[in-house]
Design a protein around this nucleic acid. Structure first.
Length: 868
DNA sequence: AGCCACACGC
DNA sequence: GACGTACGTGTGGCTG
């Protein structure tokens, strides 16, 4: 087969890894984060690319041949932190442990080594992949050489191809050096020409081709200042181009043949990982556990001590526990573990009694799933005291928990994964009872072990109450909601489907007629060709794969061609048809209901999400879509759908957290918050707030709540980024305590590494100190926004738990069906609804005492549509 | 099977 | 100056 060479820019990736990962230390006090990140990258590259040849290039020293040309080359760079430079020897050792060659050459940079070898590889018919964190190498891209850039972290990678570069600039990679020649490069202290940034440089190059040609045509250049700068800095431009040019003929003392990878043992890797304490990686090497090694001896259920601390593990095949095949149940008492076939659980009296006894504390992997599965077996489990999935999520919501092995891995333990036992994709199957029972026994044993570790960590974070009093009780409420389901009227959807299909057919015909040909309107690619090539409409925006045909683009084209209006309507209707009208019908069960599942451990802010189907994004904004809600009804005649939603909960939380008086006053006095914001930001009296001012103020409030950037605000208001930034500045000047909070919370994130909600939910913000402008900006907005959105999530969750507890002491027969972030949906007998409304409103408004009032609005009707 | 573009909600 | 800009889920197209 063809040969493939990987070339790694060692210094650049060491820096990336260092800043991407928290400053880890092994017990000997050596910092290891850069080495660790480097290792992850090597693992990923070897696995994904399967190279035949491999080399890591390093920079040799401070001065290079470029310094002869320009003394200040790379001047003004910050010194490499000590914590990183001490890791370089280990990175070299690491590379050697992988039996990968590394090379450095005095007077040259890693870039030149890479450039020279990639040229040689191309000459020998090899494919080359260059991996770096530095954009400089883009110039080497061609059809045989790709450059992969690490984006976020170390293992998130962007692939640069000649087309990518061409799409971005309008010219190929070979002109990158000309670009640098004109615009310079601050990171390498390459001067370029003053007053020329990317925009101007690209324009000039598109017109003249190269720096030399630009200089040759100086007299044609318009703009006095530009002409003057170019004239005065011709030499700088040429020198900058020279500096930016990678040397592809460096005098290397290493040959391509020497970079060939050999089959090697893991000995050195194991030794190094041991000394650096890379436990997880070590676990991966020391072969995946075989059944015999980890097999727990199976006891009969009678031998288990069900009186003390126990764990219960039950699961089903694939992820939908509301309907899929139930697998056995395993119980561990910490010494012995027993596995019972699911059919035998309810029949086994001692076991069933134990499961239903609230005084017998049980530790589980997933309380909601466990509750549902046992309920399906006819057992109402009581006394779940700890959920390791919830615990792991609360400790760090970025943990993506897919199985017990994943939580174990996070705790430095290695064990068989669900994928290993069940297989994945089409090959997924339940294994033999032997394997299955052994696996389940092990799961139960490990769950018990992990519970102790995680509980101690929660305690250390003062998060035990968050688990015990909020998330765990909520899991049981959610289990009930999922099992309850919501009735959906299929006939209603069928009628809508027919109606929509008629309109869609008409639109398709009209669009094809406008286009003069038949094509698939659902294909952005085909649509792009029709709009921008056949019909020659102006290209507003591009995606990385072609023309963008997104709504904002189409709206900008309205009036330019009659096809646009039809496409906009087609888009809207076909989304309704495929996702909702047709999609939801498929989800209606034999009970006439849809049973969504709520994911309690996914959203980084603490919100819930909903899958299979997602009932948190049923249309509401446009009436056309809102009509879908007519199909959602109460399950019994005489009952109604009742919806209660928090009014402006996030902004109320913001007023509470910041203590901002003006904002708080608005809520205390019941002033419309968007109007109030407009009054403050525009400095006008209430009666002088125009509809447009209120609309803009609303968008700014939206931005505050969701942590959008100046760019995001500019997009939503259709204004410039500068104008958007001014809005934000004016807003913060109007609400000084909000401004103070924003500054403080960023400081706090820097200091603690995380931010927290009112209920002590955490979100870690590792990028808060990134020197990457984008990552840092994103991190800052996350820091500002998460306590607001997350506290709002805390409040509605608390309301749900309080409601569930309180309703049991009433005669209400209402059922809680759905949660949509700031809204709860119930079904209620119509005669109860008035009293129930007061009951729910009281619970929701007093879920948590804030310095500003919480306001709940509600309505009811025969369908969700009517409960507006 | 996995990625992309797009669109829905909050 | 900028790598790309609230989150999460589902759909259809396309690619390998």
């Amino acid at each position: 087969m063809s040969e493939k060479l990987i070339l790694i820019d060692g210094n650049s990736l060491a820096f990336r890894a260092f800043y991407a990962l928290p400053l880890l230390k092994n017990s000997a006090g050596i910092h290891t984060n850069a080495v660790y990140g480097f290792t992850l990258l090597l693992e990923k590259i070897i696995k994904d690319e399967q190279p035949t040849h491999f080399l890591v290039a390093f920079d040799a020293g401070k001065t290079t041949f470029r310094h002869e040309t320009y003394q200040d080359y790379k001047g003004g760079r910050q010194k490499t932190p000590q914590e990183l430079s001490e890791q370089f020897p280990y990175i070299r050792k690491l590379v050697e442990a992988y039996h990968i060659k590394h090379y450095e050459l005095p007077n040259y940079e890693a870039d030149d080594i890479i450039g020279t070898l990639s040229k040689e590889a191309t000459a020998n018919g090899m494919k080359t992949i260059i991996i770096t964190g530095d954009r400089d190498l883009t110039q080497l891209v061609n059809e045989h050489v790709s450059v992969y850039y690490t984006k976020k972290g170390v293992t998130d990678i962007d692939h640069y191809t000649p087309e990518f570069v061409r799409d971005k600039y309008g010219f190929g990679p070979e002109k990158i050096v000309d670009l640098k020649g004109l615009m310079g490069d601050t990171s390498d202290n390459i001067p370029g020409v003053p007053g020329i940034g990317e925009k101007t440089a690209v324009k000039l190059l598109l017109e003249y081709g190269t720096v030399e040609e630009v200089i040759a045509h100086l007299d044609d250049i318009k703009g006095k200042k530009l002409h003057e700068n170019l004239t005065n800095h011709q030499a700088d431009a040429l020198m900058s181009k020279e500096l930016a040019t990678i040397n592809q003929d460096a005098p290397l003392a290493i040959t391509l043949a020497e970079t060939k990878l050999t089959d090697a043992t893991n000995d050195k890797k194991v030794e190094l990982f041991r000394s650096l304490e890379f436990k997880q990686l070590l676990g991966n090497i020391e072969t995946a556990p075989r059944a015999e090694e980890t097999a727990v001896e199976l006891s009969s259920i009678e031998e288990i001590d069900l009186t003390g601390r126990t764990s219960v593990f039950i699961d089903c095949f694939k992820d939908n526990y509301l309907k899929n095949e139930i697998l056995p149940l395993a119980v561990s008492d910490g010494r012995k573990v027993a596995v019972v076939a699911c059919d035998a659980v309810a029949a086994h009296e001692a076991l069933a009694n134990y499961l239903m006894d609230p005084s017998k504390p049980k530790v589980v992997y997933d309380a909601k799933k466990t509750t549902v599965l046992l309920n399906r077996l006819g057992v109402e489990i009581k006394g779940i005291a700890f959920d390791i999935t919830l615990a792991s999520y609360l400790l760090d919501p970025s943990n993506t928990i897919i199985d017990v092995a994943e939580i174990a891995r996070l705790e430095g333990k290695s064990l068989a994964t669900n994928d290993q036992i069940f297989g994945k994709g089409a090959k997924m199957a339940v294994p033999s009872d032997d394997i299955l029972h052994g696996y389940f026994a092990q799961q139960a044993a490990v769950v018990l072990e992990l519970a102790g570790l995680l509980k101690a960590k929660l305690e250390g974070n003062e998060q035990l109450a968050l688990h015990d009093e909020l998330e765990l009780p909520l899991a049981l409420v959610l289990a009930k909601m999922e099992m309850q389901g919501i009735t959906v009227n299929k006939e209603e959807l069928v009628t809508m489907q027919q109606e929509l299909q008629g309109r869609l057919d008409t639109l398709i015909a009209a669009i094809h007629a406008h286009a003069g040909q038949e094509f698939n309107i659902n294909s952005p690619k085909q649509l792009g060709v029709v709009l921008f090539e056949e019909l020659q409409l102006p290209i507003i925006k591009k995606t990385k794969t072609g023309y963008s045909t997104a709504v904002d683009v189409l709206e900008a084209l309205q009036g330019k061609h009659p096809i646009i209006d039809d496409i906009l309507i087609y888009r809207q209707l076909s989304k309704l048809q495929s996702t909702y009208v047709e999609g939801l019908q498929k989800m209606i069960g034999e009970d006439g209901k849809i049973h969504t599942r709520f994911n309690q451990v996914l959203a980084q802010t603490g919100r819930l999400s909903s899958v299979d189907p997602n009932l948190q994004n049923i249309p509401v904004r446009l009436d056309e879509g809102r009509k879908i809600r007519k199909a959602f009804t109460a399950s019994r005649p005489g009952w109604v759908i009742f919806a209660a939603d928090y009014s402006q909960i996030e902004l109320r939380v913001l007023a509470h957290i910041t203590g901002d008086e003006r904002m708080s006053d608005a809520f205390i006095q019941g002033t419309d918050i968007h109007t109030k914001t407009a009054m403050e930001v525009f400095g006008v009296a209430k009666d002088d707030v125009t509809a447009n001012m209120r609309r803009q103020a609303k968008a700014v409030n939206f931005g505050i709540v969701y942590g959008i950037s100046d760019y995001g605000l500019s997009q939503s208001l259709g204004i410039t980024r500068k104008a958007a930034q001014k809005f934000i500045d004016d807003y913060l000047a109007s609400f000084p305590d909000v401004k103070q909070y924003m500054d403080d919370i960023i400081q706090q994130a820097k200091q603690d590494g995380y931010v927290a909600t009112l209920m002590k939910r955490r979100r870690y913000i590792p990028d808060i100190s990134s020197r990457n402008f984008n990552l840092r900006g994103f991190a800052e907005r996350t820091a500002m926004n998460t306590p607001i959105q997350g506290s709002a999530a805390d409040i509605i969750k608390l309301a749900m738990v309080n409601y569930d507890k309180a309703v049991q002491d009433t005669d209400f027969s209402a059922e809680l069906l759905l949660q949509v972030h700031d809204e709860l949906i119930f079904e209620v007998p119509e005669e109860e609804v008035e009293a129930f409304s007061l009951f729910v409103k009281d619970i929701m408004e007093h879920a948590l005492k804030l310095d500003v009032p919480l306001l709940v609005e509600s309505d009811y009707g025969k369908s969700w549509y009517d409960a507006k």
